[in-house]
């Protein structure tokens, strides 16, 4: 008898995926800016526009991916944003709802976090 496990079932990944997208977006923004400021604008004079546009692009991609995940969590997993629904039934379907629910919430949180991360490029036009 084989039991479904993490690797086989592929269910749990959705719980960390939105966070991973945020992390990737965050690190990319940081690295792009850091490398640009260290290599091209070491004296602080060079404009930041290339970074601005790259970050904007990366941000759109990240938001798109989170949106896709949210749809997935909503549709396939039956996630919702209720607070008072306990999702505590002893059924496999309920566990799936739970994963979708958490994933959907994480999508919302990380949408905001991604937007936060992108805000600085709207404010600064130089490295220093």
């Amino acid at each position: 008898m084989r039991y479904p496990r993490l690797i086989d079932d592929r269910s749990i990944w959705i719980m960390v995926a939105p966070s991973v997208i945020w992390a990737a977006h965050f690190l990319l923004c940081y690295w792009i800016a850091a490398i640009w400021c260290a290599k091209e604008a070491a004296d602080g004079s060079a404009p930041l526009q290339p970074v601005t546009w790259t970050v904007a692009g990366v941000t759109l991609v990240a938001l798109g991916l989170i949106w896709a995940l949210a749809r997935h969590a909503w549709g396939r997993y039956g996630g919702s944003l209720f607070i008072t629904r306990t999702i505590a039934d002893d059924r496999a379907q309920e566990r799936k709802h739970f994963l979708g629910h958490v994933a959907l919430l994480l999508c919302a949180l990380h949408t905001l976090a991604v937007i936060f991360t992108a805000l600085p490029v709207l404010v600064f036009d130089r490295c220093w």
């Binding site: 602080g44 936060f116 805000l119 600085p120 404010v123 600064f124 130089r126 220093w128």
Partner: peptide, 17 residues
């Protein structure tokens, strides 16, 4: 928090360099 972040960033731009 959004408001604070924006204010903080603008202040930073104002006093840096």
């Amino acid at each position: 928090l959004t408001g604070l972040l924006a204010t903080g960033l603008l202040t930073l731009r104002g006093i840096a360099a």
